[in-house]
Nucleic acid binder design. Sequence first.
DNA 1: CATATTAATCGTAAAATTACGATTAATATG
DNA 2: CATATTAATCGTAATTTTACGATTAATATG
Lengths: 110, 110
Amino acid sequence: MGTTKTKDYSVQELSIAKYAKALSHPARVAILNVLLKRQSCICGAIVDELPLSQSTVSQHLKELKAAGLIKGDIDGVSVCYCIDEKEWTKAKNQLGLLLDKLMSPASKCC
Amino acid sequence: MGTTKTKDYSVQELSIAKYAKALSHPARVAILNVLLKRQSCICGAIVDELPLSQSTVSQHLKELKAAGLIKGDIDGVSVCYCIDEKEWTKAKNQLGLLLDKLMSPASKCC
DNA sequence: CATATTAATCGTAAAATTACGATTAATATG
DNA sequence: CATATTAATCGTAATTTTACGATTAATATG
């Protein structure tokens, strides 16, 4: 089947899964690294830095955009991509909250 | 094709993608929530808390184990799962490092 | 206006993911 | 020892992901 029923999970679970999914491919992490490093973020420049075709990079950009982590501004014939700070912060908080939820010393079992 | 060449990406990119992938399905986030909340973590109890079949949950557990985030101890006929603190900390640091890499004020473009 | 450039989208193929029921292996329990 | 319980694995199907080349739409440039 391969389908997942959205309503079976909590908002937190769905939200975290959404952000994690955006980060679940090295190419997308690489794209984000480029955007975090540079101020210039023209799509073509990103394509040049990745070992992937233009169309594939475009697809990855689309997914990052769908997750809200980046946004793109059309500038003439090019598109300037950059981190969406607001959503980025949300992702950081959501993922951080989960990852921090380890009450360290007493790991009774195992 | 659908293949991804591992050597085209940095260790950091591959590592983050690995952890993010583990968290990229709400069922797996839900499993981790169970393990973070409870001390008892018998596989059957996890299955009872999820809207999925035993075999599907077993597959998700396998993936979390493959990412190193959890480990399972066989106890007679049951298996006790729990967070692997060491790898969990690594995941937290890796993901945290990326998410924190936003030098906030000067987002020149877009 | 013809041509180049840029990036999205389309069509397609291969692979991976997700899910389930059935089976299996291992340990308990009567 | 026969039977029950637990959880992994197998087989399978639907769906999604990943990737590419080709095409398209939009803007720029000669």
